[in-house]
Design a binder for these strands. Structure first.
Lengths: 183, 183
DNA sequence: ATTATATATATCAGCCTGATATAGATACGT
DNA sequence: ACGTATCTATATCAGGCTGATATATATAAT
């Protein structure tokens, strides 16, 4: 997916600053996608100069200016049209899997050459991480207003459900089978 | 994980050419990690000039020369030592999740703006892909000699089992809940 | 009082990917 | 039999993206 489509898509969920978009990539989106500041800021500037987003400069007392971007109608049109062509490209490419770089899997793959102590640490930290992530995805209590609205979105429900099941399955498997890696 | 560690690790499973290493990344490893030719070939050249791997030039009748690399004892030492420092870095970084770019999840996230027809195609292709992958991971019949040896490795058993369960879970969830994305 | 962490934007070196070049072999349709 | 596409095999490189760094202030922790 083009970075423009993605930034516009996130702004379609509500006005945000570049910093806040980055926070989304480091929080709830971190298991699906990420973009760096070096991509986000130039993309937002580019979208703004082409009127796909508008920008309100919040001169915060003593903090650096916060530039809050809002998607325009023109931007919404571009996003929808881009989304369609991005989906078409996804189909055309025949590449339906995800692009993954998993340090954990590589360490498991070569675990034969790792000291047992280190392997234990790796496994423990991985399980701990998965459990924390699972809690975040399952948690249904009160949260900041804007996120609460997002929760009602069908797509968010679908994704949270899928992520939860996958994390649960992963945790159960690792806890049950990690002994297999030692003899 | 450093590209050198990874290439040495794969060569520790048996002698291979750069092309065959790439094939591993596009086949069984594709859901965990990948490196491009532009990284693999220079890395192998570098490893060779530092005597971490040796190279046998197979002058195939009429095909381009095939350079088959074999890991040396020096290379095996480097790999083990690198593996330990890579694992330590994994722990130190506190980043226990995987680096993922999932076009599929983004399309689901913004599915509200996608025509139903396109969403159906995306879902169908995804499920089809997952089912094919699942078959590959579960399949237990006869395979080329070298792969058969690998199958007996504890780490490979662990990974195949984990991948199978995750794919099964993913398929079941998508088939059961995809209707949620439409009203 | 000092250090570390968080907010906030911006830039950039350097690495990696995706594309392209080269070149013969084999499979495939017609 | 002939053109075409795909596979084997190595190599290079432009361009894009990441991770690091710079800048500046606020707040929390020690």
């Amino acid at each position: 997916m083009k970075k423009e489509t993605l930034c516009l898509g996130l702004l379609s969920l509500g006005p945000r600053s570049g910093y806040e978009i980055k926070q989304m990539f480091e929080g709830p989106l971190s298991d699906f996608y990420s973009l760096s500041f070096g991509t986000i800021y130039p993309t937002l500037n580019n979208l703004q100069s082409n009127k796909y987003v508008s920008c309100k400069q919040h001169t915060q007392s003593k903090k650096p200016d916060k530039k809050v971007y809002t998607i325009t109608n023109k931007g919404l049109d571009l996003m929808k049209s881009n989304l369609l062509s991005d989906a078409a490209e996804y189909i055309r490419s025949g590449n339906f899997g995800d692009q993954i770089k998993s340090e954990f899997f590589l360490l498991v793959l070569f675990s034969k050459y790792l000291p047992n102590e280190m392997l234990d640490t790796v496994m423990n930290e991985r399980v701990l991480y998965l459990k924390q992530k699972l809690e975040q995805f399952k948690y249904d209590g009160p949260i900041p207003s804007e996120l609460a609205a997002l929760r009602k979105e069908k797509s968010i429900k679908f994704i949270r459900g899928l992520a939860s099941t996958l994390f649960e399955t992963g945790i159960r498997y690792v806890e049950k089978n990690r002994y297999l890696l030692k003899e």
